[in-house]
């Protein structure tokens, strides 16, 4: 394990509403991981949602209110870390357009690689894994191969490249409901590529996209699991990830 270049930075976790409510294991994994790397993690209890659903569905006024709450909740923190590329993109790109000045907010892999300067986080995950670069982490944030460099350093992990990886999975927030048929057609191609890799686990930096792809993989009883990147990086030989801990 590499040591973080910054000494015990004080950071806030923005869990995001999807992860907080539906995937608490991911948020616990972020805490475990960051503390293992020497960070002191706080979770301001005033946080709720970044407003992305409202903004992207055509309700910018509601989103503006939530952007204001975000600004107040995290004011004064040097760094806010979110286990989501799309929520981070919303905060960083859209909140300023809505007239707020949010605290510096990072997607998890950006924070690890750019701020802490680590790629080997001491993780252990003995499974065959493929990685889907979610659209907003790829195109809004430009995280590039940071998640892949983190995954490559995980002990026991067999990383398989996902064909046509940069194609959208078809989630798109309310798009998945408003254009459910088109969303499903996109999903079927994404699932085909995932299955072609022979992976046990599909990982990504966004639980919302994983909820969509995982929902399809589960519906078809493919046996492939979706696991957020944070949970893989938090897993160690002493305390390995298991489905039961989710």
């Amino acid at each position: 394990m590499q040591k973080a270049v910054v000494e015990s930075p004080k950071v806030a976790l923005f869990a995001t509403c999807v992860t907080d409510t539906l995937y608490p294991a991911t948020a616990r994994a972020v805490v475990t991981l960051l503390e293992r790397l020497g960070c002191s993690v706080e979770f301001p209890l005033d946080q709720t949602c970044c407003g992305q659903m409202h903004f992207n569905t055509g309700y910018p006024d509601h989103a503006r209110g939530l952007a204001g709450s975000y600004e107040r909740t995290f004011a004064g923190y040097d760094a806010v870390i979110a286990p989501s590329g799309s929520c981070t993109g919303m905060v960083r790109d859209i909140h300023p357009q809505l007239g707020t000045t949010p605290a510096p907010t990072y997607e998890l892999s950006e924070f690890l690689v750019d701020v802490l300067g680590v790629t080997d986080v001491g993780a252990y995950f003995p499974h065959r894994v493929t990685y889907h670069p979610t659209c907003h982490s790829l195109r809004m944030l430009g995280v590039g191969d940071k998640p892949l460099s983190l995954l490559r350093a995980v002990r026991g992990l067999d990383l398989v490249a996902l064909p046509d990886a940069e194609s959208c999975c078809g989630f798109g927030g309310t798009f998945a409901l408003k254009n459910a048929d088109t969303s499903t057609a996109m999903l079927s191609d994404k699932m085909r590529h995932v299955l072609d890799t022979g992976s046990e686990v599909l990982t990504a930096g966004d639980n919302s996209c994983l909820m969509h792809i995982g929902g399809g993989l589960s519906r078809l009883r493919t046996g492939v699991r979706t696991v957020h990147l944070a949970e893989i990086l938090a897993s160690t030989e002493e305390d390995p990830w298991s489905p039961a801990t989710r």
């Binding site: 869990a15 907080d20 608490p24 979770f43 409901l177 999903l187 995982g214 929902g215």
Partner: peptide, 22 residues
């Protein structure tokens, strides 16, 4: 229903992260 027409939905956990943190 538009979601579950083609996808399973996740089963919400007993305890949210926030509740766990508290």
């Amino acid at each position: 229903a538009a979601w579950t027409s083609s996808r399973d939905a996740p089963v919400p956990p007993k305890q949210s992260f926030r509740a766990w943190w508290k």
